[in-house]
């Protein structure tokens, strides 16, 4: 079972990120997934988050009990949700937007300049999909193939190509990061 928190600010596609991964998991990977979003006045413009539980069997408890993965797209989101990340958790973050504290426990941090990559691709708005590519490569919660199917289902038709490019960019960067980690220091 994977318990994932996506955190950022309103407008970054944080909820959409939860939906894309959840859709990939439960429709294309044939697993079970439940996505809940933070909802309230504080979500507009300010901190925004979604929580996703992916499991091999029916998800009974719909919220996170111990976040295994935190995907942080803003400093406020990181500050708010870093404390709930489990000691063996994975931290994925946009390195231009989040300055993480000294790591605690055995948390493994993975940094990506997601927004910068998105700007290079032409639209800052796809930064969340860049980080989803990175997420797919690093965490393997969902398969690459399923994400490639779930993205076109979740974005406007004219934006599909750009989003798939953004996904590839993040995914390939993730693979490089993993490769470097394996190389002897």
């Amino acid at each position: 079972m994977a318990e994932i928190r996506f955190a950022g600010y309103g407008g970054q596609g944080i909820i959409r990120s939860g939906i894309i991964v959840g859709r990939a998991a439960s429709i294309y990977d044939d697993k079970f997934s439940t996505m809940s979003q933070s909802f309230g006045p504080e979500a507009r413009g300010g901190a925004c988050s979604s929580q996703l539980v992916v499991s091999e069997s029916k998800v009974l408890y719909p919220y996170l009990t111990a976040a295994g993965i935190l995907v942080a797209m803003s400093q406020a989101g990181y500050d708010k949700f870093e404390p709930e990340l489990s000691e063996k958790g994975l931290l994925l973050y946009d390195e231009d937007l989040v300055k993480p504290k000294a790591s605690r426990g055995n948390i493994t941090p993975f940094a990506i300049p997601a927004t910068r990559f998105a700007e290079q691709l032409g639209k800052k708005i796809v930064a969340n999909v860049v980080i989803l590519g990175f997420f797919t490569a690093i965490t393997k919660v969902v398969t690459y193939e399923s994400m490639k199917k779930a993205i076109p289902d979740s974005v406007p038709e004219k934006a599909i190509d750009l989003n798939l490019k953004a996904f590839e960019r993040g995914y390939n960067f993730g693979l490089e990061v993993l490769k470097k980690q394996k190389e002897p220091q």
């Binding site: 959840g22 859709r23 439940t34």
Partner: peptide
């Protein structure tokens, strides 16, 4: 609200 705002297949 929990079921109403819960997204699943």
């Amino acid at each position: 609200e929990c079921v109403g705002h819960m997204t699943e297949k």
